[in-house]
Simulated scan of single mutants.
Amino acid sequence: MTLSPLFTAPWAVQLHAYAALALIPLTLAMFTLVRGTRLHRILGWAWVLLMACVALSSFWIQEIQLIGGFSPIHLLSLVTLVSLVVAVSAARGKRRGRHRRVMIWLTFGSLMTAGVFTLLPGRLMHAVVFAL
């Protein structure tokens, strides 16, 4: 593993990667904490802000251009941003089931699925993790 490809990447890629990497331990904490506590809410807001940062920063990353300067991953970013609003709204409205479902979708559908694709050969995180 080497971080040098990440250190030399454009600012948007660095911001995107660091925010996504910060989400890994935070996500694990969120799944193990008691829900509804003050700590859960504080860390939950941090999670939402980091996830929004990941989604928003993706719009400045345009290495794969299929539709103008965008790719299907940008559609996932839009869905993620809308889902974050839905999840927060559900939590504030005491609709715990909906909040839980949306947050689980965000974790597995957005964060983990997209994360796996970053490890494909030719991608920056592949070079970081496998030291190429």
Rank of each mutant, 00 (worst) to 15 (best):
M103L: 13
H99G: 00
I104S: 06
V54Y: 01
G44D: 00
M30K: 06
R123T: 02
G69C: 11
G68K: 09
V88G: 12
V128E: 00
R96L: 15
F70M: 02
V102K: 00
F31M: 11
H74F: 04
L84C: 12
G122E: 12
F117W: 12
V129F: 15
H126N: 15
L78R: 05
S83M: 14
H74T: 00
S110K: 01
R100G: 07
A127M: 08
L78Q: 03
W47D: 01
C53Q: 01
V82Q: 11
T80M: 03
L56N: 04
A114F: 13
F31H: 11
L56H: 10
P121Y: 12
G44P: 07
L66W: 10
S110A: 15
W47A: 06
S57V: 06
M51D: 01
I73C: 04
A52C: 01
L84V: 10
P121F: 11
R96S: 14
L39Q: 13
E63H: 15
L81E: 00
T107W: 04
V34K: 14
H99W: 09
T113V: 15
R35V: 06
I73A: 09
F59T: 00
V86L: 14
I42E: 00
A87S: 13
L66D: 05
H74V: 02
T118Y: 11
L78P: 00
E63F: 15
A46N: 09
Q62H: 06
L78H: 07
I61E: 01
L119Y: 08
S58E: 07
A90M: 10
V88M: 15
G68F: 10
L43G: 05
R101V: 06
M51I: 07
L39C: 05
S57W: 03
R123L: 02
S71I: 02
M125R: 05
S71D: 04
L50W: 03
M51R: 01
V34D: 14
